[in-house]
């Protein structure tokens, strides 16, 4: 264990296996600088690699035992949910809706509840849904969500799978200019094939990957101005997409977990009035999320607080001398 005064008493447990990144140390036998840490960190590489996994499993185990708590929902959070509910509520029975599922698997858990609520809401309102993806991860999520809807009893006449379209933004432009193309079959696909994207009454973009609400506003809106676009995104995308909501280019935006929960609960409250596709998704564990955040805060503060306090103390001493 060493302390360097110029770094404010920061502890430096070096790792001998790090090669050129490791700080140079006196490793001669009997050196006070080398021996203690060498003894402490002598773990097999397999064991060291398993520590993060074990830590995660322990955290998840503890989190599952924490009693449930509710998320705080302020006025803006409830308004975001109401915007999406209103955008879907304006649809007539049988209205075609294009859903772009392009979340990424890392952040999708944050918006999964809202996405499933929106899909259930569309089913409850009698909308017909066409699902498309432009990213591999988005396609994986879309496949799972379509399978889930099928399992709930939603037939192919209500949910058309437009599949994965490779090519990124050019593929999105192609969809906007040429419509869904000849590959998808079925009465719903035939109905929307004729007039291209203009035949859809709403586009719902599930963001997170490369293609998201910004691409839709930039590439699709100029080509199909009559198509309203709503979005569900993870919170890290909010700085990017909030201006589009403020300008009205997005008719609705659900971008935080509390907003997604508020919207889902609004849908669940109406669910009892409808038949198949009733929304009964289990709420994400707010307690587990708060627990994880508290652990992260504790670790971040413990790792950075000592250094910052040390520098502040050193600066204060320098100022006094």
């Amino acid at each position: 264990m060493t302390e360097s005064p110029d770094e404010g008493g920061r502890r430096e447990p070096p790792e001998p296996s790090e090669g050129p990144e490791s700080p140079v140390r006196d490793e001669t036998p009997g050196s006070a600088d080398a021996q203690p840490w060498r003894r402490r960190t002598r773990l097999a590489p397999g064991v060291r690699a398993g520590i993060p996994i074990l830590a995660l499993l322990i955290l998840l185990g503890i989190a599952s035992l924490v009693p449930g708590i509710g998320f705080a929902a302020d006025v803006s959070v409830e308004a975001a949910g109401r915007d999406l509910e209103a955008a879907i509520g304006r649809l007539q029975t049988g209205a075609p809706v294009l859903v772009d599922i392009d979340g990424d698997l890392g952040t999708y858990p944050e918006i999964r509840y809202a996405t499933r609520a929106a899909l259930a809401d569309l089913m409850l309102r009698g909308a017909n849904v066409a699902v498309v993806s432009f990213s591999g991860e988005g396609r994986a999520i879309a496949v799972a969500e379509i399978a889930r809807l099928r399992h709930l009893g939603v037939g192919p006449d209500r949910v058309a799978d437009l599949g994965f379209r490779s090519g990124g933004e050019p593929a999105l432009v192609q969809l906007a200019s040429e419509g869904i193309g000849p590959n998808t079959s079925g009465s719903f696909a035939d109905a929307v094939r004729k007039d291209g994207l203009a035949s859809f009454r709403l586009a719902l973009v599930i963001g997170g990957a490369e293609i998201g609400p910004r691409s839709w506003v930039e590439q699709v809106q100029p080509r199909v101005p009559a198509l309203p676009i709503a979005a569900i995104t993870p919170s890290f995308l909010l700085p990017e997409v909030l201006p589009y909501r403020s300008s009205g280019q997005l008719v609705a935006l659900v971008g935080t977990l509390p907003a997604g929960l508020a919207y889902g609960q609004q849908v669940a409250a109406r669910g009892a009035e409808f038949g198949p596709g009733r929304f009964a998704e289990r709420l994400p564990s707010g307690a587990a999320i708060v627990f994880g955040m508290l652990v992260a805060i504790a670790v971040l503060l413990a790792s950075s607080g000592g250094s910052l306090a040390g520098w502040a103390r050193a600066a204060w001493r320098r100022g006094r001398s």
């Binding site: 070096p14 998320f71 705080a72 509390p258 708060v290 955040m293 950075s304 910052l308």
Partner: peptide, 26 residues
Amino acid sequence: LRIRARETAVMLAAAAAVLIMLLPIG
């Protein structure tokens, strides 16, 4: 923290501050 201690500490403190602000408490 070992490689660029000062910058990393500031970044981690900022991350902790953002996490504290995002805590969904009533």
